[in-house]
Write a protein that binds this DNA or RNA. Structure first.
Length: 574
RNA sequence: GGGCCCGUAGCUCAAUUGGUCAGAGCAGACCGCUCAUAACGGUUUGGUUGGGGGUUCAAGUCCCUCCGGGCCUACCA
């Protein structure tokens, strides 16, 4: 039994997440956690809302609420939606928690002691009308290069030229539209990542099994230009974690907060502490997952995220943890494997919150149960490259895989049995060559399935699972109990007994992808406590003769063409 | 501009890291079955692996080049 720590990239607080966000980290993390738990490993799955930063403040303002109140509400909304998608987080925390305040300040203090913090005087644009400093991209103006009037302070979307806010002609606040802007000096803390470049590079070089996406992005940042750049870890904002060295004030940094990207990854750890608190477990309980000197030396830590998160998880966060351990006193657990995925697109374009384009988590659950989405998203996860959500593809995948191959199998077996033998497992006959062949086939496929999960290959695992469902239909077709029943009811009984056991087996194997349907299958078979089939032959004899079962409602209904067209129109966006 | 990834059957993707006639699923065609959600099973059509050149006994896989997509390039997260 291994100990596996799993974190999902933190969903940002400013609204309901779309299917792309879901499949980018939370859903794969959940499926992986479910599989590993099913195999008997000790698993801890951690996620949280990422609550700091300018967009959170603006979203709160737009909603007409104090930011703390807004975040608290949105946290509950996201938590409920996660539950709706059956995301089995051991804890879904908040980056604004007291634990994270304490830990973030502690780590900053340690980095200071390590000599890895530098104070830098910056010049930033301040908006008098908005009463705040504006991040580059919140300043709009005319592009000096192409004349586009809505260029942003970081880059012109029209001509793609990279800009400084001060390059813009007629600059104005993107928030209020005010042109009452001025450049002010403000002091910030920089994490001197450049000092850790060698150490980070050496560490990355050991990660030969990571997706190219992850290592290539990390190496690019390490080696590009003058190498890894030092990075500001503070901001002039109200909402956030106040800048402190541990519990002490940080002279000259009053009124400032840590940058959201500094405190968000630390929340992985803090959320684990929150988990311990909620469960009344004490510090040792979470430290054994994160501190190599306190029990975490045998933990395998796997992170899930979309590609935009990779630099922070391969460089900034490890730099923070390594720096914090400058004297060897705090050996924090570093990530062992990063599952980085690409983007999910919507009908060939981008999901867009502002234009209402694409399907968001709340809408998805209004339309169909979570299993439909989980199956399609995971079996089409954007692993190798971006993948595209289309209603036609979704309809096809769900109807064929879930309704026809799996759902119909369960239906045909249980209904046939009920009509010929009643609602209990038939007694007669014995398994023979046909059943042995299926057992051999499934045993081999189960090994492949397990190997895909070990490698975190979602699409391949899904394909193998589907192949195992197909084996059931092939078996029924060749064994044809409906014909055998007429001449040899005993033998037909054995076939049906085997098929009922297949349903139970599928219930166990399918759970990482479609937990609700799995529960329905196991419930119908009266086998809720079924464990992983280490021995397929034994697993397919688990339901004994005379064991009662129920014919479940159809596991999945099909998406009609009319329904598909209606949804396509509804979510096409403005 | 610089860097990275990708281009395989009508569609979505594989291919044990250079090694049998390049494989699946969907879609199409034909056949079978009738237990089942008009579901299932079988057979089958379909590819000069984006173009060109090179290395090698051997290239989808390595090198060069061209074409066509996508992504990243750091103070929004």
């Amino acid at each position: 039994m291994a100990r596996i720590l799993i974190t999902s990239a933190l969903p940002y607080i400013n609204g309901v997440k779309h299917l792309g966000n879901l499949v980018g980290s939370m859903l794969p993390a959940d499926a992986y956690a479910r599989y590993m738990r099913a195999r008997g490993h000790e698993v801890l799955l951690i996620c949280a809302t990422d609550e700091h930063g300018t967009p959170a403040e603006l979203a709160a303002a737009a909603a007409g609420k104090p930011v703390a109140e807004y975040c608290a509400e949105m946290h509950e909304v996201q938590k409920a939606l996660g539950a709706g998608f059956r995301l089995s987080f051991d804890h879904f925390g908040r980056s604004s928690s007291a634990r994270n305040h304490e830990l973030t300040q502690h780590m900053a203090g340690r980095l200071y002691e390590a000599g890895l913090i530098e104070e830098v005087m910056e010049r930033q644009v301040y908006s008098n009308a908005d009463g705040r400093f504006l991040p580059d991209r919140y300043i709009e103006g005319t592009c000096p290069n192409c004349g586009y009037e809505r260029a942003r302070g970081d880059q012109c979307e029209n001509c793609t030229k990279q800009l400084e806010p001060t390059d813009l002609i007629n600059p104005r606040s993107a928030i209020s539209g005010s042109s009452d802007l001025e450049v002010r000096e403000t002091k910030h803390l920089y994490l001197m990542q450049s000092k850790m470049r060698g150490k980070l590079a050496e560490w990355i070089d050991t990660k030969i099994d990571w997706p190219v996406l992850a290592t290539s992005i990390a190496k690019k940042w390490l080696n590009d230009g003058e190498g890894l750049q030092d990075r500001s870890i503070t901001r002039d904002l109200d909402w956030g974690i106040p800048v402190k060295r541990g519990a002490s004030v940080w002279p000259g940094m009053e009124g400032k907060v840590f940058y959201v990207w500094f405190d968000a990854p630390i929340e992985y750890i803090a959320a684990t502490a929150e988990w311990a608190d909620v469960n009344g477990l004490g510090d040792a309980a979470w430290e054994r997952w994160w501190r190599e000197d306190r029990g975490a030396e045998d933990v395998r830590y796997v992170e899930f995220m979309a590609k935009d998160n990779i630099p922070f998880h391969t460089l900034s966060f490890p730099a923070t943890l390594m720096g914090t351990n400058f004297d060897g006193a705090e050996p924090w657990k570093l990530v062992d494997f990063i599952k980085g995925v690409n983007w999910l697109t919507y009908e060939g374009g981008k999901f867009s919150t502002s234009q209402g384009r694409g399907v968001f988590m709340d809408q998805a659950l209004e339309i169909l149960p979570s299993d439909y989405w989980r199956w399609w998203l995971l079996s089409n996860a954007p692993e190798g490259s971006d993948s595209d959500f289309t209603w036609e593809g979704f309809q096809g995948g769900v109807n064929k895989d879930l309704a026809d191959v799996l759902g119909n199998f369960v239906s045909r077996v249980t209904k046939f049995c009920r009509s010929k033998f009643g609602e209990e497992v038939p007694a007669g006959g014995a398994y023979g060559a046909a059943e042995e062949a299926v057992i051999a086939d499934l045993s081999a496929r189960l090994k492949v399935y397990a190997a895909h999960w070990e490698a975190v290959e979602l699409r391949k695992a899904a394909a193998e699972l589907r192949a195992m469902w197909v084996v059931g239909n092939e078996y029924l077709q060749s064994a044809e109990p409906w014909a055998v029943f007429k001449t040899d009811p005993e033998r037909a009984g054995a076939i049906v007994r085997f098929a009922l056991n297949l349903i139970r087996l599928y219930g166990v194997l399918s759970a990482p992808f479609i937990p609700d349907a799995s529960e329905a299958m196991l419930g119908a078979m009266g086998a809720e406590d079924a464990g992983w089939p280490e021995d397929v032959a034994a697993a397919l004899s688990a339901l004994p003769a005379g064991h009662g079962f129920k014919v479940p409602d159809n596991l999945f209904s099909k998406i009609t063409d009319d329904a598909r067209e209606e949804m396509a129109a509804r979510f096409a966006g403005a």
